[in-house]
Amino acid sequence: MRTLDDIALLSPLRYKNTTLKVVLVFIGLLAGLFSASPILPLFIAVCMIAATLIFGKIPVKMYFKLFLSVLGFAVVSAFILAFFAYGDGGETLWSVNLFGWIISVTTGSANLALLVFARSANGLACLFFLSMTTPMLELFSYFKRFSFLDVFMELVMLIYRYIFVFLALLLNIQSAQTMRFGYRNFKTSIHSAGLLVGSLFVQTIEQGDRLYLSMNSRCYDGKLPYYNAEYKIMFADVLTALVFIVSVAAVYIYTRGYQFF
């Protein structure tokens, strides 16, 4: 199974300027966050999805498999808000008497639920655009340019690396247990899961010690060297970015305050 880094390395948008991509993503996130209408976040989400699929050459099936699996949490949250958050009140759209409790959906709660869902879809589409078109090492290198993020990015880089070390150890131990029929029934599965957690805890600590020793033996001074990839900003890129920003501003002006219910 390919990781997001594998996808980003094969994307044509990888060779576009990182600063420009980060700025566009931040504009999209902030515009969607401060919009009072769900139309603008949904518009930005559609633009980001289209850019990721068309210009980034990301496989459609793989993209929506990842996107929809995460978006499901936003759907559940929006559904709960529609029933239990009254927002600005308004007219009752639907109600039911459940064991003496009146559960209802009002226009205010429906608008709030739709707005939360739209903002979630917007944020998810923006982050997917950045993560699927820019390798993580280039993102780490970019954010390390800001001195106040230097130490934070060092920690993020180590944590990011250890995610894959952790997964590799987990899969190796689990495969060994499976080959020895460690999951043949419920009782042995519980026992094997306990052994898996304990062994994983010990081995990750040992891996951490090995990593610390190997870094010290290579004269680690508290700062990891990064490859700084510099890509020129082309005129077509600037023009596309301006069209996106102007479109976002226009949609914001013409749809502010608009509600579906």
Rank of each mutant, 00 (worst) to 15 (best):
232 K>C: 10
21 K>L: 13
149 L>Q: 04
169 L>Y: 09
186 F>N: 13
47 C>F: 15
37 S>G: 11
171 L>M: 13
123 G>V: 04
54 I>R: 07
243 V>F: 09
199 S>Q: 05
169 L>E: 14
54 I>S: 08
97 N>V: 01
253 I>S: 10
3 T>H: 10
232 K>F: 12
103 I>V: 15
40 L>E: 13
21 K>A: 11
181 F>E: 07
29 L>K: 04
144 K>F: 02
81 L>M: 05
44 I>H: 14
100 G>C: 06
225 P>R: 07
19 T>I: 02
30 L>E: 03
82 A>Y: 00
121 A>Q: 05
254 Y>M: 09
41 P>E: 11
124 L>Q: 00
149 L>M: 10
195 L>Y: 05
62 M>L: 12
10 L>R: 13
119 R>H: 02
154 E>L: 00
123 G>M: 03
24 L>P: 00
234 M>P: 00
156 V>F: 08
242 L>C: 11
5 D>S: 05
46 V>C: 15
70 V>R: 01
4 L>M: 14
257 G>N: 07
189 S>D: 06
154 E>M: 01
224 L>Y: 15
196 L>H: 09
237 D>H: 09
26 F>K: 01
134 T>G: 02
207 Q>K: 07
91 E>Y: 03
164 F>E: 06
45 A>E: 14
153 M>N: 05
38 P>T: 14
14 R>S: 12
115 L>Q: 11
25 V>M: 14
7 I>Q: 12
238 V>P: 10
67 F>W: 03
184 R>K: 13
220 Y>P: 07
253 I>D: 11
